[in-house]
Every structure is written in structure tokens, then in C-alpha cells.
Design a protein around this nucleic acid. Structure first.
Length: 420
RNA sequence: GUGGGUGUAGCUCAGCUUGGCUUAGAGCACUUGGCUGUGGCCCAAGUUGUCGGGGGUUCAAAUCCCCUCACCCACCCCA
């Protein structure tokens, strides 16, 4: 038997209701904030992601699904959305027609990781990208929007952590600074972190090892290492966030994993996911547009939420409410095979009147048809019986009240309308 | 990629330690009937399994051994 690939999942109709709720909530809210939906291809040239995400990151190195097309080009399934959106922005010269361009997207991403709770190979993200301004107010808007979304989506117990990673010039200084600091205390670090000093110092900041954490907490905060401009920018972001009442926490050692991030970065965690897992994250990427071939400096910022992770974090009550399937209005039961033609014609009328209606196709006993009607949650059952049909009538049963009456077939729909 | 756990009916699981009392079970679900044309409760009967897959040990394996696959959890990494 062929089964779904490792790390992929069927999303069944029961869960779809909750999915659509999260998606619709995003569409509505993002529209209000002026973000327009964009849909970019799932496949792109692999080089796009290697350039954007960084050739030394795990994503760039081993987690991407890459294959060769017939022309021998390296094609990748997108591991994240920002690179594609930026590519589309450049390629369609959207900066010229729109100026500051605000996009949102919802879609599937792919990473060849080993699956576990809240982590799949095909997973889904929804997020926004605002391209074309370095204003700290835009940072504040984007962060506030992410909080607003969490509220609208009924996510509780979230934490928004923010920090600044400095600009392009600051980045080498930061790594040099911490490399030097940590080399001096290398013996206090766990074996993994010892290796990380050369490979990716900043990763040490989110090591879970207690001793490593103690070392990290005693280090100079990143914001004290970055340039004055960036410090002021960061302060302006915080001031603006406080002004609009956004609940954020400063995390001096928050460092994101993707290479393109500059200046403001943030991460949203939820207690319902356990200690580490983030449900969403984002930040500035002031150099990415140019690095991907844009003509001029185009600062930008965005965020993304993992839909599967949002799902885990959704409130229990909400989840129950949103996973009950849509109920039928009317179920048609036939007492005899001979009444099927009449019944089908009636079913079609019902549906033309936009009633959610069903019928039994397999000639089961009336009892089992009634059971099915019950299971579908039908408010009414219209029973086509031989005797009644001779008089041009049917039995209309109100399942809620447990009462029924004989009515003329032609009047049955009017009757039902009166109740629904 | 590394470590741990689990795989028995559609679902949740018992049985596995101490191989044969299981011709593989229970509950739920499903179908049918009790109500010869009527749901939700109740009662009864019935259907459903390559005991994840392959190999081995044995007179005999769901039960023991080896390999493999899948899922889950943690690490790694990330949304």
C-alpha cells in the first residue's frame, strides 16, 4: 500500500474548519493593515534560497528538497517564503509601481527534517512582508500586527521577544566580539557549543544547557555591540511598541537562524508547545533585496507563523468549536425504491434553495436512514412513503422536536423555510 | 544525522515477561433485527485482522532472536 510520505499529512475535513478559521482570520486582518495577498511558486531555483537563507545554515546545506529539472538546473521546493516574495518583488518591479509594498502569503513550505511534534517536511506558513522602508514605525506595525493576529486567532499564552542584530556592518563585529569572549570561556561550554564558536557563534545563545546559559547571560548584550544608528533604531521600535500597547519582552540574546536578518528580530513562543518551539518569528532584512539583485537599497521586514504550530497552540475550547462539521438541514428518506425519482427531484429543489441536504443512495432500511440523518445532524427528515406519495404528500419530521406531520410535497419546502 | 519509545480489527487498547488453554480478544464504531414504514436510550445478532514487513530459532511464535520500515518523543535545526 502506498502511504503518505514521511513528514507529510492529510488534512481531513474535520480539521479543515480550524485551518480555514486561521487562514480567514489572517486574510481579514492583514487586509485591514494594508497587506495584499501574493502567491509565489512553490519551486524556485535552488540558488535563490541558498543566497537568502545562507549557504552555511542547515536549511541551505541539507534541509532543502533539491532536484534537477530536464535542463539540468537545480530546483528547490521553497523552505520559506521570504526569498520568493522578494524575488517576485524585484522581478515584477513592484517597488516602482507601489513604493512601499506590503504582502501577505499563506502556503506550504518544505524542509527535509526529521518529523516530530509541530515539525513536518511539508508544513504551512502564513506571514507578511513589508518591503521598501526602514522606518522603526514599520517594525512596530509588523510586530503589533503579529500580536493582533494571535489575539484574533484565539491564541493564548504567547510571548513576543524582540532584539536587534545590527546592520550589515555590525554583523562581523558581533561575531568577532562573541567569538573572542567565548573562546576565553570555552571550558565552561558544552561540547556542541565548543564547536559552534567557529561555525555559528550566535547559536550558542539558544543552547539549552544550563552552564552554557549561565555563560551567555553574563555576556555583553548584543545591542551594546551594535552601532549607534542601530541602537537608536531599536529604541524607536520599542518606544513605538510601548506607545501602541504591544506586549513585548526584550531578549538581549535572541538571534535568529537565517542569514538575511538585520536589525530588529523577534520571535513568538507559546507555552503550549513546550520550552523551545516558536510558533512564529520575523525580523528585518535590509540587505536581502539588493543581495538578490535589486537595483537599490531596499530595507524590509516580515514575519511568518507556522500554521501547524498555531494549531497546537489554539485554545482547547476554540478547537472544539471549530472542528464540528457542518450539519445537514434536511435528510431525505425513502421508504420504497419506487419513490427515488420523486425524492431526487425534491433533493435538487432543496439544494437549489441552498439547503444542506442529503439522501441515502443504497436502499437501506428506513431505520438506518434515520440513524444516518441523526448522525448528519439533520434538522428535518422528509420521508417519501408509498401511501403518502399517492396523495402527493410526504412526511416532514422535525428531528429536534421529535414531531412529524403529513404535508403536500409542493408545500414542503415552504414549510422547511419557515423553520430554518 | 543522533538517542529513546511504540507498531495487534475503522478507532482506543488487552494478550507478549514465563512460546502451546486464542480456531487472535474487549470496548467503541459499523450493519441488521427487536419496532414487517421512523433517529437519539436499551437489548440481541453479525461483519471487519497479511498481530507493521522480511528472515531465523522451535514440533509449535502476536509472544524469543536478527534485519527492515513506519509513526511518536527528545536532540540538532527551525515556523
Amino acid at each position: 500500500m502506498i502511504k503518505s510520505l514521511r513528514g507529510t499529512k492529510d488534512i481531513l475535513s474535520k480539521e479543515i474548519i480550524l485551518w480555514r478559521f486561521l487562514e480567514d482570520t489572517a486574510r481579514d486582518l492583514f487586509n485591514i493593515y494594508g497587506y495584499k495577498e501574493i502567491r509565489t511558486p512553490i519551486i524556485e531555483e535552488a540558488a535563490l534560497f541558498i543566497k537568502s537563507v545562507g549557504p552555511t545554515t542547515d536549511i541551505g546545506q541539507k534541509e532543502m528538497f533539491v532536484f534537477k529539472d530536464r535542463g539540468g538546473r537545480d530546483i528547490a521546493l521553497r523552505p520559506e517564503a521570504t526569498a520568493g516574495v522578494v524575488r517576485a518583488y524585484i522581478e515584477n518591479i513592484l517597488g516602482v509601481s507601489l513604493g512601499l509594498s506590503k504582502f501577505f502569503y499563506i502556503g506550504a513550505m518544505f524542509r527535509g527534517e526529521r518529523p516530530q511534534a509541530g515539525r513536518q517536511r511539508q508544513f504551512h506558513q502564513l506571514g507578511v512582508e513589508a518591503i521598501g522602508s526602514d522606518s522603526p514605525f514599520l517594525d512596530a506595525e509588523v510586530i503589533a500586527l503579529s500580536e493582533e493576529y494571535l489575539k484574533s486567532a484565539g491564541i493564548k499564552d504567547y510571548r513576543i521577544k524582540i532584539n536587534s542584530l545590527g546592520c550589515k556592518k555590525d554583523k562581523p563585529n558581533i561575531t568577532d566580539f562573541y567569538k573572542k569572549e567565548l573562546k576565553g570561556r570555552i571550558e565552561e561550554l558544552c561540547p556542541d557549543c565548543k564547536k559552534r564558536i567557529e561555525r555559528s557563534v550566535l547559536r550558542i545563545f539558544d543552547c539549552k544547557n544550563n552552564r552554557c546559559r549561565a555563560v551567555v547571560n553574563s555576556l555583553t548584550p548584543i545591542i551594546e555591540v551594535i552601532c549607534l544608528d542601530c541602537q537608536q533604531h531599536y529604541k524607536a521600535v520599542k518606544d513605538s511598541l510601548s506607545e501602541i500597547g504591544c506586549n513585548f519582552i526584550e531578549d538581549s540574546f535572541l538571534a535568529r537562524g537565517l542569514d538575511y536578518y538585520t536589525r530588529t528580530v523577534f520571535e513568538i513562543t507559546s507555552d503550549s508547545l513546550g520550552a523551545k518551539d516558536a510558533i512564529g518569528a520575523g525580523g528585518r532584512y535590509d540587505n536581502l533585496v539588493k543581495d538578490l539583485g535589486g537595483k537599490k537599497d531596499t530595507p524590509a521586514i516580515g514575519f511568518a507563523f507556522g500554521i501547524e504550530r498555531l494549531l497546537i497552540a489554539t485554545d482547547e475550547a476554540l478547537r472544539e468549536k471549530k472542528t464540528t462539521s457542518i450539519k445537514s438541514d434536511v435528510f431525505i428518506a425513502t421508504a420504497t425504491r419506487s419513490s427515488y425519482n420523486e425524492a431526487f427531484r425534491f433533493l435538487k429543489w432543496l439544494r437549489e434553495e441552498r439547503f444542506v441536504s442529503e439522501i441515502d443512495y443504497d436502499g437501506r432500511s428506513l431505520k438506518s436512514q434515520m440513524r444516518r440523518a441523526e448522525k448528519l445532524g439533520a434538522r428535518f427528515v422528509v420521508i417519501f412513503g408509498e401511501e403518502e406519495l399517492k396523495k402527493g404528500r410526504v412526511v416532514l419530521r422535525d428531528m429536534q422536536k421529535g414531531e412529524q406531520e403529513e404535508v403536500e410535497l409542493s408545500k414542503a419546502i415552504e414549510k422547511i423555510k419557515g423553520f430554518l
